[in-house]
Computed example of a mutant assay.
Amino acid sequence: MARLDELKQNLVPGKVYRREDLTRWTTSVDRDIRKLLDAGELTKLSGGVYMRPKTTSFGRAPASDRDLVETFLRDKRFLLLTPNAYNALGVGATQLYNETVVYNRKRHGRFKLGNRVYDFRMKPEFPAVATKEFLLVDLVNNLKRLAEDETQVLERAKVVARELDQGALQQAADDYGGVRAKKFFRNVFTETGAVDG
């Protein structure tokens, strides 16, 4: 029992752990995890991923997206994004989406972690922070996945593209644009005379 108490004392409320993280405090990790799960001292979020519940005045708080994804991937290099971010660009995107996209270099597919589903997409390159320029390129990349009128969104995207930093937008299109996005922005830059080379 002393070993289980020691394990409990080392678990921080609200923090996400992998099974192997817990082996530093117990030699009977599976048995102790089962006891903590049964006692409500630990919550299973996914295979081998657990959280020490954190209680607030509103009840049990979910794990932060960042902590959850970092523990699941075993990697700090990822970008969390929701398609709702496109709405702030002013391109006529108004739909609300209940999903979080995770650009990363390790996993691909939809995974349920806790009560939420994350859409993991493997990408060789993505920025550390989603700038407006990146979001506009990403919008064009993902237009087929969205429930928006493509023609209207693309027309408005041209207007927005002219208002953004042309150098940063061209760099984002070069670095992160798919074939369609590269062609779209090449045409926009040609129209505005902002194309390099």
Rank of each mutant, 00 (worst) to 15 (best):
K106C: 03
G14H: 07
Q152Y: 09
N115W: 08
V179R: 15
Q170N: 14
I33M: 05
K182P: 04
E155G: 05
E20T: 14
R121D: 04
D165R: 03
K54P: 03
Y97H: 04
F134V: 03
Q170E: 15
K144C: 02
L42K: 02
T94Q: 14
P124E: 14
G48W: 12
A39H: 02
L139I: 08
N141D: 07
D75R: 09
R186Q: 14
G48D: 04
K106N: 10
A172L: 00
K183E: 11
A147F: 09
T71C: 10
L143I: 15
L154N: 07
V29C: 14
F58Y: 15
A85Y: 03
G197T: 11
E163Q: 15
D5T: 09
K15G: 03
L80F: 07
R116D: 07
L164Y: 06
K183C: 00
M1I: 10
G48F: 11
E191N: 04
P83C: 05
L143Y: 00
G193S: 09
R162A: 15
M122H: 02
S64Q: 13
R121E: 11
R186C: 00
D32N: 12
Y17F: 05
R60S: 10
G47E: 08
G197Q: 11
V91W: 00
D65A: 07
N187E: 15
A61Q: 14
N87K: 12
F111E: 01
V179P: 10
T94E: 14
G177W: 01
A93N: 00
L11C: 08
R121S: 04
P53I: 09
F134Q: 02
L22Q: 04
Q171I: 09
A61K: 15
G47F: 12
L37S: 08
D165P: 01
N84Q: 02
V160P: 02
S46F: 12
G90S: 10
L37T: 06
E163R: 15
N98V: 11
H108T: 12
G90A: 06
L164T: 08
D149M: 07
R66M: 05
K123V: 00
D21G: 05
R110G: 10
M122N: 01
T43A: 09
V29Q: 04
L146C: 10
F111Q: 02
R52W: 07
M51Q: 09
Q95E: 15
R24V: 14
T23M: 12
R60Y: 10
F185N: 00
E41C: 07
Y17N: 00
Q171C: 00
V179W: 11
R77S: 13
V160S: 01
L7E: 04
Y50Q: 01
V49W: 03
A147Q: 12
G14S: 06
S57I: 15
R19D: 06
A130V: 09
Q95C: 06
R77T: 08
V179Q: 15
L164Q: 05
A2T: 15
A161S: 12
